[in-house]
Design a protein around this nucleic acid. Structure first.
Lengths: 130, 130
DNA sequence: GTAAGCTCCGTACCACTGTACGGTGTCAAA
DNA sequence: TTTGACACCGTACAGTGGTACGGAGCTTAC
């Protein structure tokens, strides 16, 4: 089940060095070095890296991911509080992105209605004081 | 009309050093140094900085802003394509965050129904593949 | 005309998120 | 048993987006 670092990296589609970096950042645990042979990365660790990558995709920094991961040692009640806080920031992020979405939508549709190809409403609007 | 760097920075609500940084990055042109006195930042330059800041708010990197600036002379259609690409990634991010939101919601409500404080459904789920 | 307060400029530094390098150890196959 | 590939480890460097500092020079107000 467990894999060497390069197999793990390949499966995850990331660089070996990234895995080592996450180890240094304490985002994942470095598997113990066996007396003989290379470190073996268990499926659990690989899943955690996938979790990190997923969270990053969603706009979480590694620091935020670390917080999420630290939920591990705490009693359920505390985990819940942290999860609720996270939920609130997720909601804020969604709201922010939705504002962005509608701003971009407006701009793009202005472009659609624009007949003068040499004059762009997006460029205009970015020059204004919002 | 033109302003010294600190007046410009103040008007824009940014740090003086940020203006200098943009000059070094060639995002704005440094006004010529007069024989006597300090550099004068014309309204056009201030507008461009506003442009940069607005574009950043919309999630464009400085590199993308540089592209946008180069598009200034180009047809609207090309600007539109860039904006649409950005729009697509924003939509993806929103969808991802909404999935996360509902996952967190589920977990939190599971916590609510959980009686054993030493065993947390959220922790269980973090071990899993998202 | 002098002090306070700007500007100028180069350089250094910051956090973040990796990536690369070089020397050495280990493994597996021919 | 030798060879080539991979692992290990520490350290250095990279790109992004700034921020800080220090020693000049210049301006403005008193």
């Amino acid at each position: 089940m467990a894999k060497t670092i390069s197999k793990a990296a390949k499966e995850l589609g990331i660089n070996i060095e990234t895995i080592r970096f996450y180890e240094r950042q304490k985002l994942i645990q470095q598997p113990p070095k066996p007396i003989q042979g290379y470190r073996q990365y268990p499926e659990k660790t690989i899943e955690r890296i996938r979790f990190i990558k997923n969270a990053q995709e969603l706009g979480f920094t590694l620091n935020e991911v670390a917080n999420l991961i630290q939920l591990n040692d705490k009693p359920c009640a505390q985990v819940q509080i942290l999860a609720e806080q996270k939920l609130a920031t997720v909601k804020e992020k969604i709201a922010g992105l939705q504002r962005l979405e509608s701003a971009l939508n407006t701009l793009v549709s202005q472009c659609h209605h624009n007949l003068d190809d040499n004059h762009c409403p997006i460029i205009d609007s970015l020059q204004k004081n919002l």
